[in-house]
Design a binder for these strands. Structure first.
Lengths: 177, 177
DNA sequence: ATCACGGGAGAACGTTCGTTCTCTCTGGTT
DNA sequence: AACCAGAGAGAACGAACGTTCTCCCGTGAT
């Protein structure tokens, strides 16, 4: 197995485990057995758990934003499609909320690499929304609705929060012309 | 020191430490030295860390909701006052987001007592908002805005999110008459 | 005064975890 | 054939943590 394949398998295992159970409660041994990559190799590729966590967050950020972007683009970049995408995401059986918000809850501001990945993700999403609606204030309002819906859907286990946020978004957009 | 005072000091120390640093990264020894209560007494009052965490969340829930309720009541129960209260909360120097959302990130659905406290808190807040605006759909939309603003204010360290959410709330309320 | 009890301080125990080390094997090079 | 670089499996190490235990002291009852 070459380094590229080892990296890929490690990131896939890390994402599965960290997202489902949280970072702190998953040991490096669990990542090793899930990925089939030896501990020695693991530490060659990611010299510490913090490095693995930061890589997990960054790859998840890219996949997550790409999925959202493509879904919305297929709907003629209608901002309301964002909330339809949220509904699909909330309905996935292993949905457990926003990985970045959850990691913030686990680490707060303590781990620098983790904090940077969290900031970067939120900045990118906000920038995307601002491109989508071209009114920065409105975009920030929609962003707040997105985050609230995600938190509540995760805690209550109810995908219907996406519909609530969508209705609010429609009202806000209508009010702004 | 009697049991009542020990309980009080333990809960105060636990809240300070758990909220500031997260639950998992605070050991029982830290709670002991901060509170001045011996370990033996600690385990008499709270037989396990899970019990202490659940008690921390429940007392915080009550104090938090009382503070919100009183602030808003002093403003003639204007729903927009909720967002002014959020702005004050976000501006506190040790603000670190919603303790319940953070705990959800740490524990997910694993610890039953913790999960129950989280659900209870969110249910109570939603019920309060529904009483405040008397339109359940609108109340749920405001709830989503609150949660989103809290998450984003915590991650970005910017109390201004309260203003963004307030403006959105004003628009939504105007649209509903 | 003595004795029993409850409490405080902190050592001790068992487990978990991040990280490193050892041992062995394989596979390519000369 | 001899050798060596690297990899895998897993033991080992050191720290941290939740929880319990030991030892000692003070206090209140008899």
């Amino acid at each position: 197995m070459n380094t590229a394949e080892a990296t890929e398998r490690l990131l896939e295992a890390a994402e599965d485990l960290f997202y489902a159970q949280g970072v702190q409660s998953v040991g490096m041994d669990a990542v090793r057995s899930r990925s089939g990559v030896s501990l020695k190799r693991l530490y060659q590729v990611f010299p510490s758990k913090d490095d693995l966590v930061a890589a997990y967050l960054n790859t998840r950020d890219e996949r997550w934003r790409r999925s959202l972007r493509e879904f919305v683009a297929a709907r003629a970049d209608d901002p309301l499609a964002v909330f339809d995408w949220l509904h699909e995401w909330f309905s996935e059986p292993d949905f457990r909320g926003c990985a970045f918000v959850n990691s913030f809850g686990e680490f707060g501001t303590l781990a620098p690499g983790v904090a940077a990945a969290i900031h970067n993700h939120k900045d990118e999403v906000r920038a995307y929304l601002r491109r989508l609606v071209a009114d920065d204030d409105l975009a920030d309002q929609l962003f707040s609705l997105m985050e609230g819906a995600t938190v509540l859907a995760a805690i209550k286990g109810d995908p219907g929060e996406a519909g609530t946020a969508r209705a609010a978004a429609a009202t806000l957009m209508a009010a702004r012309g």
